[in-house]
């Protein structure tokens, strides 16, 4: 059972919001005493996902939460946008696949950097990506 302890919602509409958001995630991670390497992994993964959100869906909303499961604490981030959605998630999760001009590392790379990764998308409605990084994960 995952319990949510504290929560914050950040709206992303422009590139500069990304820095604000990254700092917010860092504050949360420091509050639960996450180590520097895990913090960096979490924020890098978040940075990849928030870029996708800006590029393909013109922004969206991110929920930052401190969550707890048993004795373990962690950070859960939920990225929600109302963009065009992803028609083939399996393909989007493949290394090197991109419909933009990028390297295609964003989604698969972010998945490798966190402990829990889930993605749900409906064409024309939007995409929701949820990641969790545990303090000792």
């Amino acid at each position: 059972m995952i319990i949510s302890l504290s929560k914050d919602v950040v709206a992303i509409t422009k590139e500069q919001d990304v820095i604000l958001f990254r700092n917010r995630v860092k504050e949360f991670a420091q509050k639960i005493k996450m180590g520097l390497v895990n913090q960096t992994k979490l924020i890098t993964a978040a940075s990849e996902l928030v870029r996708n959100m800006l590029r393909y869906a013109d922004g969206g909303q991110i929920t930052i939460e401190v969550v707890s499961k048993g004795r373990e604490n962690g950070i859960r981030l939920v990225f929600k946008d109302s963009g065009p959605g992803i028609s083939d998630i399996q393909l989007a999760m493949k290394d090197g696949f991109s419909i933009g001009k990028s390297l295609g590392l964003g989604l698969p790379g972010a998945k490798r950097l966190v402990n829990d990764f889930s993605i749900a998308s409906e064409a024309g409605k939007g995409t929701v990506v949820t990641i969790i990084k545990w303090v000792n994960g």
Binding site: V37, L105, G109, R112
Partner: peptide
């Protein structure tokens, strides 16, 4: 480069 950044870059696949 900070060590944590190096670790993250390699795991990211870059």
């Amino acid at each position: 480069m900070q060590p944590a950044v190096a670790i993250t870059l390699v795991e990211l696949g870059l």
